[in-house]
């Protein structure tokens, strides 16, 4: 675990990763927004993280706590995940192959959304929250230009394959990869199709972006075609040979 002192003032550790925050036009506003976001993530982490052995979700996973006895947020997150399982034809599922209920993706997305709302409630309209590569923004960047998100190159983590400006209809982007959580103690989610090594999904909200990205990584090209037809999303997918697929509205070079 990274010590707090090694992180810059606009970032904090949560859910096994690092959350980065931007807000307003001054360091003071940004620092306050970071504290607000950290408290939101702390609460979600305590209840729903499989990274914490004492969380309610870890106790559910070990069979020490019935899901029906868990807090309402955890039960709602589970209901949301199950609804998305149906909506993605089973490509997204909160049930891991080993039987453990894994709500990490949904919970992280819910925490990002709630952190953004909490920052907005303080009167700051222009902010961005990035939890380990899943991003939600509001308004414009300081200086009046749109928030721009780079897409990591899965073949070279120090490089970007593309970039994308976020706006009103696409405030969120999430990227899912086959290497995701590879060095975590829990086994990665069941990957049924190896078509893609990385899938980035832009959507109006972060839950849709996160779930659809995870579903396409699991379900491959068939799921990609089904979900781009039904969901309001823009997708950039990197195949295992390094070539790219993009939906028509994914931004092109001029």
């Amino acid at each position: 675990m990274v010590q707090a002192r090694t992180l810059p003032p606009n970032a904090f550790a949560a859910m096994g990763t690092v959350v980065s925050v931007r807000a307003g036009g001054s360091d003071v506003v940004a620092a306050r927004a970071t504290v607000i976001a950290a408290s939101v993530f702390e609460r979600w982490d305590r209840r729903c993280s499989l990274y914490r052995p004492d969380s309610e979700l870890s106790r559910v996973a070990r069979g020490e706590l019935a899901l029906s006895d868990a807090c309402v947020e955890l039960r709602d997150a589970y209901a949301l995940a199950v609804a998305w399982r149906a909506r993605t034809g089973g490509a997204f599922t909160p049930h891991r192959a080993d039987g453990v209920i894994d709500l990490n993706g949904v919970v992280k997305a819910l925490a990002i959304a709630e952190a953004g709302e909490a920052i907005g409630a303080t009167g700051v309209d222009e902010w961005g929250v990035d939890a380990g590569g899943d991003v939600l923004v509001s308004g414009l960047r300081a200086g009046g230009s749109p928030w721009i998100v780079g897409i990591a190159d899965p073949g070279d983590r120090g490089a970007m394959v593309a970039s994308l400006p976020l706006g009103d209809a696409r405030r969120a982007i999430a990227t899912s990869g086959t290497a995701e959580r590879g060095d975590h103690i829990w086994s990665p989610t069941d990957v049924r199709d190896a078509s893609f090594v990385q899938v980035s999904v832009a959507a109006a909200d972060i839950v849709t972006a996160d779930v659809v990205a995870t579903a396409i990584i699991a379900g491959g090209e068939a799921t990609l075609d089904e979900l781009t037809a039904c969901e309001q999303v823009d997708v950039l997918a990197v195949r295992s040979d390094g070539t790219l697929l993009a939906t028509p509205r994914w931004p092109r070079a001029a």
Binding site: V18, G133, D134, R141, A152, I173, T175, S176, A179, E180
Partner: peptide, 10 residues
């Protein structure tokens, strides 16, 4: 401002 990629560990 941000890089979207597969989740990195802390």
């Amino acid at each position: 401002s941000f890089v979207s990629g597969a989740t990195y560990t802390s």
